[in-house]
Design a protein around this nucleic acid. Structure first.
Lengths: 190, 190
DNA sequence: CACAGATTTCAGAAACTACTGAAATGAGTG
DNA sequence: CACTCATTTCAGTAGTTTCTGAAATCTGTG
């Protein structure tokens, strides 16, 4: 690997981390390399930089394409494929979240829904279904929130994040207004 | 496996999903089983329910304990260990998030910080560092937000989630107020 | 302190995943 | 349509992870 120490360290670290996520080492390394490279790279450059086989690069790039994490570029007068990553980190994050949701959350959600439709066959089952219901509610709330928030432009998202839990101050305000506007039950908590 | 079809389906699904996350099949299955069981189970009950070896159960429970995802109970007059999961799903989710952050995010953050301290040794390097910086900023923002929000009680969290992107309406309001209070530049966007 | 019940450790077997090199396929060019 | 350059596929191997059964350890009791 003939890379600057900084780049090399980053690439190796990402490889390691990759295997803690579902993606494998090579895929992580390739992604990291593309991410820090100013210009798009072709497969052979990756082979050389990471010292792995050509076919491994090919398969890993294919996987990254499946995750929508790389962009294909063509240089005029060159038939090779060149690859980069999208350059807006928020965009990348959103893609990642989207893909992981598709693979890791949606299937669970649909299994849960299905199981909740079954008539319970025992007391044990009834209890289990309660628990499944709780899990279902939780996941559904989170995904609804996510679907809602993911549409925000990066700038607003940053503002939202910066606000953090202070948002609940607004919630208090809103509660108070709503409760005044309605029947005036109890005053909101202090 | 002598479990009701519903429970069995859930346990198997969780096993499958487990392997898409970092946790392995058995660990996922055991967790699922404990989650849907009303009463704490001891290791041998798990062996019987899932038809796996005693030692596998032992190791997997150990791993779950490492993730803080199971609780140990003792029945009076019984020396065996009994296991359950915490029963607040928000609590569980928070634990999970916490642990994943510790294992998957914090190390990256510290590598990034370290690499950003290095003096760049070339133009290539300078570019790479810009990218690392962007990634660092993003991750830091997210974790700060998370650290802030995780302290909220479930109820408020639910309220926050229900609000979703509507929160930005409040942001607009705040912007307007702030800009009026200050120098009165331009009115906020419609 | 020896015994019984419970749990853990560990070396090796089984199962799975990642990686390679060789061969096949595809695509533009003369 | 044959040649060349580029990419992909695939079968086999290397490498990892998971799981097991047997042996070791641990802990309270008679």
């Amino acid at each position: 690997m003939n890379l600057s120490p900084t780049i090399q360290a980053f690439v190796l670290h990402f490889g390691e981390m990759g295997s803690r996520w579902g993606i494998n080492r090579t895929v992580g390394q390739i992604y990291a390399l593309l991410y820090v490279s100013r210009d798009p790279l072709c497969a052979d450059q990756i082979v050389e930089a990471l010292e792995i086989s050509r076919s491994n690069v090919s398969m890993s790039l294919r996987e990254l394409q499946g995750w929508n994490l790389v962009l294909l570029k063509h240089l005029p007068g060159d038939r090779r494929d060149f690859f980069t990553t999208p350059d807006d980190v928020w965009q990348i994050l959103r893609t990642l979240a989207e893909e992981r949701k598709k693979r890791e959350v949606d299937p669970t959600l649909s299994v849960l829904r299905e199981l909740l439709m079954q008539a319970p066959s025992s007391d044990e089952d009834r209890f289990a279904q309660t628990r499944l219901g709780e899990m279902h509610t939780l996941i559904e709330r989170l995904t609804t929130w996510y679907d809602d928030v993911k549409r925000l432009e990066p700038e607003r998202l940053v503002a939202l994040l910066a606000l953090g839990s202070k948002v609940t101050k607004f919630l208090d305000t809103k509660d108070r207004i709503v409760s005044l506007g309605r029947k005036r039950k109890e005053p909101a908590a202090p």
